Simulated scan of single mutants.
Amino acid sequence: MTGKSQIFFACILLLLATSCQEAKKPTIALVENKVVDFDNEKKAILETLNSETKAAFDRDYEAWKEKWVHDKNITKTYIDFADSTFSESVGWDEISRFVKTFIEEHPEPEPVPKLLEKINVRLYGNGAWVTYEQQDSLRGLKRETRLMEKVNGEWKIAGMQTTIYGFNSPE
């Protein structure tokens, strides 16, 4: 065996050893394939979203917080084109503090928007990606994206992005 062949063979062995070692460390979690009733899951997600919206507009912090995942990696983002503002909160503690402060500073309930009837849902095991539009009587048209997680059999919000367009329709 020549020197080049020995180096090539050693590199192949090193590559195999490294790839075998990496294979022992899973980087993704596999979710069992289960048959789910899509309509029931969508209905449950819709109930969570409507309950969370109602609680927020009614200024009911305790009911509102029950609809959220309490985790350091969740996010809540508002982009308001109507008044050129933006806010982002990361992690349950920051989101909770933001909402609690908002409720303390604005304790009067607001008119609850027409509750959702139509949402777009993509299910991914115990997660879902949800999009919809909603007309808010005080802010106008809102487009929302919600990341949902099923926790102990209940759908909860793990991420939220709200884009507010105001009363002028987006181009």
Rank of each mutant, 00 (worst) to 15 (best):
A55E: 06
C11T: 06
E66D: 12
N50H: 06
I119Y: 05
P170W: 04
K4I: 01
G3D: 12
L115V: 01
V121H: 02
T53N: 11
T163L: 06
D71R: 11
N152K: 09
V69D: 00
G153F: 00
N152F: 01
K24T: 13
G3F: 13
S87H: 10
N126A: 10
Y165C: 08
L141T: 01
L147Q: 05
I119E: 07
K150L: 07
E66A: 11
Y165A: 08
W68N: 09
E149P: 01
A56L: 15
W92C: 02
T77M: 12
L14G: 04
I45T: 08
D60H: 00
P109K: 03
M148F: 05
L30W: 13
L141P: 06
M148K: 00
M160H: 00
P170D: 07
K118P: 08
F98D: 07
E47A: 12
E133S: 11
L46S: 04
V90I: 13
V35G: 08
F38H: 09
K114C: 06
E22N: 10
T101S: 08
I164Q: 00
K43C: 04
L13W: 00
P113C: 03
D93C: 07
T27Q: 14
T27E: 14
T53K: 11
E52Q: 15
S19Q: 15
D80Q: 03
F81C: 05
M148Y: 02
Y132M: 11
E104I: 04
G3T: 14
V151W: 05
R59K: 15
M1V: 13
Y132S: 12
I157F: 06
V99Y: 06
D83C: 04
E88W: 10
W129I: 13
L49Q: 05
G127E: 14
T162H: 02
S19E: 14
N50T: 01
I95M: 03
K4G: 07
K72H: 11
K54P: 07
W64S: 03
T145M: 08
E105F: 02
A56N: 08
P170I: 07
V36I: 15
L141C: 05
V35Q: 14
R146H: 04
V121T: 05
C20T: 08
I164C: 01
L115P: 12
K76M: 13
M160D: 06
T27V: 14
G153E: 02
H70R: 14
D136N: 15
L15D: 04
E62V: 15
C20Y: 12
A82W: 08
E66S: 10
F38W: 09
L49Y: 01
I164D: 02
T48S: 08
K54R: 09
A23E: 13
K156I: 01
E149C: 04
T101Y: 05
E47D: 12
G127R: 14
H70W: 02
L15A: 12
P109H: 03
N152Y: 00
D58H: 03
S137L: 09
S96N: 07
P111D: 08
Q6I: 05
N33Y: 14
L116M: 09
I157V: 02
S87L: 09
E47V: 01
V99G: 04
D93T: 02
Y61V: 12
L115Q: 14
E52L: 03
N40L: 14
E88V: 08
F8K: 06
R122L: 15
V99D: 01
H106D: 08
V90C: 01
S96D: 07
Y132G: 10
P111R: 00
A23M: 13
A29E: 14
L115Y: 07
